[in-house]
């Protein structure tokens, strides 16, 4: 235990020393080197975000150019009182929550399984990770057509094979269907990260627990799970950030419908901006999305920050 800590201290000292040692030319050179990245990212983030905030206080519709007017919080009032907002917020949270729960639980099981020693383990890992690399539009259409189609889909065949009535997934359970297909994309991610974490479990800790008389179940509960907790938190936070803005899957399968049943905030903002051309309203929605994402981001940044040294 002593040595990695030592190492960190030495590293800190080193960094500090290098900082103190900087010559003028060094400072200029390193600023020149880091400058473009920082400047670009700042512009990329700050300019549009400032515009979004500004637009959110305007009555601004692309169909009525030149009629922009300052309206204060009116857009927010409309946005929050719009029943679509409540529905979209519910859908967003439902998607994020359910997909995280399913993908983490199933991903954990997959990871534990793939961490065992068995024949062809390497190949099964390659197969299991694959869904994560499928582009969203492909996986959405693949599920919508070839798996979930009420007549010719694979699931329909499975149901009829056991004498059940086939389900019209996307009409009858639109939200559930979306959750199912996106869960499929994210199980591999959770599994891969938890598997990596499992493999970093200190072997001597496991041996010590064995000598202390821990069976496989207690070993899992008292050694493996605490070790994995940190990674689980990381997976949850990262998935939240991506899942808060699910778009392509909804765009190509349900188009937010039927009704508003699969409209999340991202899709609502999109439809307000690019289908109804209500820039002001969409901007207000965008600000709400940014705030939601920031709540998660704060926690994630803290964890990353702690790990940085």
């Amino acid at each position: 235990m002593g040595s990695p800590r030592h190492h960190a201290e030495a590293g800190e000292f080193n960094q500090w020393r290098f900082f103190m040692e900087l010559r003028r030319s060094d400072i200029i050179l390193s600023r020149l080197a880091a400058g473009p990245s920082i400047l670009l990212l700042f512009v990329w983030m700050a300019v549009p975000l400032a515009m979004t905030i500004y637009f959110s206080f305007l009555n601004y519709n692309l169909l009525e150019p030149g009629m922009e007017q300052w309206t204060g919080f009116l857009n927010y009032e409309f946005f929050f009182s719009d029943p679509a907002f409540g529905q979209a917020l519910f859908n967003t949270l439902a998607m994020v929550g359910m997909i995280i729960v399913f993908s983490v639980v199933l991903g954990l099981l997959t990871a534990v399984l793939l961490n065992q020693d068995f024949w062809g383990r390497g190949l099964t890992r390659v197969l299991a990770i694959s869904p994560f690399f499928i582009m969203p539009t492909v996986s959405a259409l693949l599920w919508k057509n070839m798996l979930m189609h009420p007549v010719s889909g694979f699931f329909a065949w499975l149901f009829s094979a056991v004498n059940l009535e086939p389900i019209d997934w996307l009409s009858d359970f639109p939200l559930g269907s979306i959750i199912m297909m996106i869960t499929w994309q994210w199980i591999p991610f959770a599994a891969l990260i938890l598997l990596t974490s499992l493999q970093s479990l200190d072997e001597s800790q496991v041996e010590a627990a064995k000598i202390d008389g821990a069976g496989p179940i207690r070993m899992f509960l008292y050694i493996t799970v605490p070790h994995l907790m940190r990674s689980v938190v990381v997976v949850v936070l990262i998935e939240s950030i991506f899942l808060l803005t699910i778009f392509a899957e909804i765009f190509v399968t349900t188009g937010g419908g039927p009704g508003l049943e699969t409209t999340n905030i991202a899709f609502l903002v999109y439809s307000q901006a690019l289908l109804q051309f209500d820039v002001g309203g969409a901007a207000a929605g965008g600000v709400v999305a940014v705030i939601l994402a920031n709540i998660v981001a704060i926690f994630l940044m803290r964890m990353i920050g702690k790990n940085l040294d």
Partner: peptide, 10 residues
Amino acid sequence: MMPPVGVLVP
């Protein structure tokens, strides 16, 4: 970590 919809419009 900024959601793309936050800057879609501008």
